[in-house]
């Protein structure tokens, strides 16, 4: 049975990837973590928002503080989190279940998606939740390709979320917070996708290349 189910999932996914990128649902997401190593560091907060191109719906915005007792390696100010936020932390299972549900059939969008995805997977596994997005889109990789194609020398610091947004003349956001970074990443994704595909009904898989 497991085999047939996997085949079916694979088939559906293939079909879905062939559909226009504009007909898809995207989850732009950002994590705050206590450090850079997924093996030893913790997820402190998760923020995400749903996008149906070209619209990003604020009502779909979610934000969870997931860690009641943080071991901060960095200054908490960097994350915009203070002690009282941690006191308000909820059981991470709730947040993860909701995320798993929303990611079903949707594309996960992050700035440096490998980083977030490694943390997310470990975190979800530890709480017995499986996350299965349709696909993953990385605004950072996309931008690196884009700049290379324009034969730009990629200068240090030119691939930060802020720098990428500036090139598309997107508004400057000052807050550093999982939710506002998720929004910022989501807007960057829209700018990249429209610049790449315009109104052509390019299949999603082409955008993911």
């Amino acid at each position: 049975m497991a085999f047939w189910q996997r085949l079916q999932t694979y088939w559906r996914r293939r079909q879905q990837l062939r559909k226009s990128w504009r007909a898809q649902r995207y989850i732009a997401l950002d994590l705050e973590t206590s450090g850079l190593d997924p093996k030893s560091d913790q997820v402190l907060a998760i923020g995400w928002v749903t996008i149906r191109p070209p619209v990003l719906d604020y009502a779909s915005g979610q934000y969870f503080v997931t860690q009641a007792q943080p071991e901060l390696k960095q200054s908490p100010v960097v994350h915009g989190l203070v002690q009282k936020d941690f006191a308000a932390a909820e059981a991470p299972e709730e947040a993860l279940k909701q995320l798993a549900h929303e990611l079903e059939g949707a594309v996960l969008v992050c700035h440096h998606v490998q980083f977030d995805w490694q943390f997310l997977q470990r975190f979800a596994k530890a709480h017995g939740v499986r996350l299965q997005p349709l696909a993953k889109y990385d605004t950072l990789t996309f931008e690196a390709h884009r700049l290379k194609q324009q034969q730009h020398h990629i200068a240090r610091g030119s691939l930060t979320l802020k720098a990428c947004r500036e090139r598309f003349r997107l508004p400057e956001y000052t807050a550093h917070h999982a939710f506002s970074d998720a929004l910022a990443c989501g807007e960057l994704f829209l700018a990249q996708a429209y610049q790449y595909a315009g109104n052509a009904d390019a299949p999603l898989k082409e955008l993911l290349k």
Binding site: P53, P54, V55, D57, Y58, A59, E187, L190, N199
Partner: peptide
């Protein structure tokens, strides 16, 4: 009001439709 807002990325391809 903030929670009711939809943000759209507007460009020549989607302006009329949106």
């Amino acid at each position: 009001a903030a929670g009711q807002i939809k943000a759209a990325y507007l460009n020549e391809h989607n302006v009329d439709e949106l």
